[in-house]
Design a protein around this nucleic acid. Structure first.
Length: 563
DNA sequence: ATAGGGTTAG
């Protein structure tokens, strides 16, 4: 490629050789300037092309817009766009890209609307330029981009990829997967970028079958070696609870980066294999790969999930002292979790008080759940108080608080919490569990009766509950919000979404393990119940909740009841 | 000819 540093050189060459730059040369040269860290030559070129009138050329003008956009001179870019005698879609896209690169997302969208009003149709390039503006954005903007996609005259690979990524960047993995399947139907051939974009969605949904199918496709099309794609594969397997598969991809990689290691470390961490995570972290250091801030989050949280108190604290110290990484709120959150989860609730609270930044919801939430586990009402009340201020709409905190009161036998306060919730019109967030069957993700809500097989599922569940009781199962009412009579409570617990999803899988599949993903943490009752179910039906059951994996087998769980 | 698409934590 032409480089700006060599421009003088090239220019002299051309003159000496009797060539003079024309409007085919300038776009290339402008591109070289905008990619270099010395765009001034580009600005000078603007003067040159202006003198000879080349600035009226479409391609030259487009080059100038991109150049000014990349340098943050948006007014100038805008001026060039406005003064061009004719514009094409690239002119508009370059302007959109300019605003996006400078984080002026509203202006970028404004340009899109403007081009549409002038009957210039957005294309895949417009969507691609917008993409960085689409991380955690509003549903209005997502539907705007979706409309753009739908209206495309010709959908090319890039447009599909961008739309999939846009869904992913807005926590809409179902939509991302949906679109991928549609893409297959339209016989558009996915490339490495498609796969790397949709695999995290498979991981999110525990859509292992689809993930595997994409992996096979990747092999068939020889899309690897490709670092980002392989990292996506590791992550997909890790989040589907398939450690061996994740490991296999990792082991076969030619080149690894910190993301490859981090994915695998957290995979071990989430399964409760803290010592493996520690060993892997050491191996990473020995291989010459330095950890980054995210890698430390992964290893400290791995320690926390396995109760490796000393190791976790050591990593926190190592991070700051040896690697000069300033701990972010995520690291503090991991450490609070490490302390609280291992029963050091006071230490966790003191640690929070010494934090250099304002503790957020996550921090107090972590503390509150450890208060519940270790029945620490004093600190629990402090945490709950903060949380009800920070997010009075989140039902989970009321439930935790109520549980803490209930454990202490403070029934008046239980009732008070319940009526506070009612007064504020806060409904419990429904638990949702996903299970994959025949390339389709089936979703169950707590108490769901909408599934076509619903009747069968409930019948089978009550048979199972009967067998569980023979094995000594007593529904643990502590896990439910105490707002119903004892008998009802048992009934409510029986229909937590994971139970429905598991029974559905028992009825419809034979192969182990059964894999479930849920949107909340597994409650104590379900944990006991699933252990028993795994014994009764002799099936391995893997449940991924918001925090970690539970591998149930023959009546026990991989977390050793530490969670 | 000019713009523009991907991975890692909690």
């Amino acid at each position: 490629m032409l480089r700006a540093e060599n421009l003088d050189w090239h220019a002299r060459d051309m003159v000496d050789g009797g060539f003079s730059p024309d409007n085919y040369t300038y776009p290339c040269v402008l591109k070289a300037c905008s990619c270099s860290d010395n765009p001034r030559i580009g600005f000078q070129l603007h003067g040159v092309v202006f003198k000879v009138g080349f600035d009226l050329n479409l391609f030259v003008g487009n080059g100038l817009i991109a150049l000014y956009g990349k340098c943050g001179c948006l007014l100038e870019a805008r001026r060039v766009l406005g003064e061009m005698p004719s514009r094409d879609v690239v002119s508009w896209n370059s302007m959109v890209a300019g605003y996006v690169q400078n984080k002026r997302f509203d202006d970028a969208l404004q340009i899109c609307r403007e081009m549409e009003s002038l009957r210039h149709k957005p294309d895949a390039g417009t969507m691609a330029s917008l993409l960085p503006a689409l991380t955690d954005t509003s549903s209005e903007i997502i539907s705007y981009v979706k409309q753009m996609f739908v209206n495309l005259e010709k959908k090319n690979l890039v447009s599909w990829n961008v739309m999939i990524t846009a869904y992913m960047k807005n926590s809409m993995p179902e939509k991302a997967v949906d679109l991928y399947l549609q893409m297959e139907k339209c016989e558009v051939e996915p490339d490495a970028i498609t796969c790397a974009s949709v695999l995290p969605a498979c991981g999110d949904l525990s859509a292992l079958l689809l993930g595997r199918r994409i992996h096979e496709y990747v092999e068939r099309k020889n899309l690897c070696p490709n670092l980002l794609l392989e990292n996506s594969l590791i992550d997909m397997y890790a989040r589907c609870g398939c450690l061996e598969d994740a490991r296999r991809v990792f082991d076969r990689m030619k080149f690894r980066d910190v993301a490859s290691w981090t994915s695998l470390i957290s995979a071990y961490g989430m399964t409760g294999k803290g010592y493996n995570a520690v060993a892997l972290f050491t191996e990473m250091l020995n291989s010459g790969q330095s950890p980054d801030s995210i890698a430390f989050v992964a290893i400290i949280s791995a320690c926390s999930h396995s109760g490796l108190y000393n190791e976790g604290k050591l990593y926190f110290k190592q991070m700051t002292d040896d690697y000069g990484i300033t701990p972010r709120i995520e690291h503090f959150s991991c450490l609070v979790d490490l302390l609280g989860r291992s029963g050091r609730v006071d230490e966790a609270y003191n640690f929070i008080k010494q934090m250099p930044m304002e503790p957020n919801e996550r921090i107090w939430g972590t503390l509150l759940s450890s208060c519940r586990v270790y029945s620490n009402m004093d600190i629990g009340l402090v945490a709950a108080d903060k949380l009800l201020q920070l997010d009075p709409e989140e039902s989970g905190y009321y439930v935790l608080l109520s549980n803490i009161y209930a454990k202490a036998g403070r029934w008046t306060e239980v009732t008070a919490t319940r009526s506070l919730m009612k007064r504020r019109k806060i409904r419990k967030r429904p638990g949702i569990s996903n299970v994959e069957l025949n390339n389709q993700v089936h979703t169950f809500l707590a108490g769901d009766t909408s599934h076509p097989q619903s009747k069968e599922i409930y019948e089978e569940l009550s048979v199972l509950v009967g067998k569980m009781k023979e094995l000594g199962y007593v529904p643990e009412t502590d896990s439910a919000l105490h707002d119903v009579e004892e008998e009802d409570k048992e009934c409510h617990l029986a229909v937590h979404s994971e139970k429905l999803a598991i029974v559905f899988a028992i009825l419809n599949t034979r192969e182990s393990p059964i894999r479930i993903t849920k949107n909340l943490r597994v409650c104590g009752d379900c944990h006991i119940a699933v252990k028993l179910i795994s014994k009764i039906v002799q099936r391995e059951i893997v449940v991924r909740d918001t925090n970690r994996f539970h591998h149930f087998k023959d009546g026990t769980c991989s977390c050793c009841d530490y969670w």
